[in-house]
Design a protein around this nucleic acid. Structure first.
Lengths: 111, 111
DNA sequence: GTAACCAGTATAACAGAGTATACCAGTTAT
DNA sequence: ATAACTGGTATACTCTGTTATACTGGTTAC
């Protein structure tokens, strides 16, 4: 039953690496919920600092999960948007939400 | 369209917290593939140290993803096994593997 | 003009994840 | 008896994710 284990573990670690950390998912979530502007996203995520948001947005853009568009209007306007690719991650995210909820119940049960 | 966002983000972060980090998934994977003994698991994961394996196994046990059974035979025998609960995470893991593979292709494409 | 917004960057410090290396008590194999 | 196995623990270090705080240059509102 040992298929291409090495490769699968690598793929798993890649996925974890892309969406891991404290802020990635909340940011993705915020953008998927329609927030486009930097400050708008910042305000929607309690506790995040501009530094972290800035860094994470760059990583997410590099990984093609979001796009960053600069509109060269008089007050420079920047918009972040989730890609279709990001949305392709939807099922995994939903599964993780469901699992997280069940998990909390399970762990807080009296032993 | 804003459902219980706060709660969902929390659930997401819980899930990430449980399976995040460099070694959790490889360990789960190893145990699910039939490795039961400490040194056996250790050898199956290139690069891991006994310290990390020890710590992660404790966390995974606390989160009820694996069981630790001590058989009080003459050479003390310890067996780790994945729980049904851990297996319930299977679909998410498979989705993550698939996503990770696709992602690698996507990112390494010429831009 | 000064206060508040925009989209960030700079610098420094902290805390926890991860690494490196050695060691322990006990058992089995030669 | 000496080496190699078992299932780990101890100590010390590095490294990076995260925080805290301040600041920039430009625009708009009062």
């Amino acid at each position: 039953m040992i298929r291409n284990q090495q490769e699968e573990v690598q793929a798993l670690q890649d996925t974890i690496y892309v969406i891991g950390g404290k802020w990635r998912l909340p940011i993705i979530n915020s953008i998927c919920n329609g927030n486009k502007r930097f400050r708008e996203i910042e305000r929607s995520i309690p506790g995040i600092t501009t530094r972290m948001l800035s860094r994470e947005l760059k990583d997410l853009e590099m990984n093609k999960l979001i796009t960053r568009t600069v509109y060269d209007e008089t007050p420079v306007l920047v918009e972040y948007e989730s890609t279709d690719y990001c949305k392709s991650f939807g099922p995994v995210i939903l599964a993780m939400i469901a699992w997280g909820k069940e998990h909390k119940k399970k762990i807080t049960q009296k032993s």
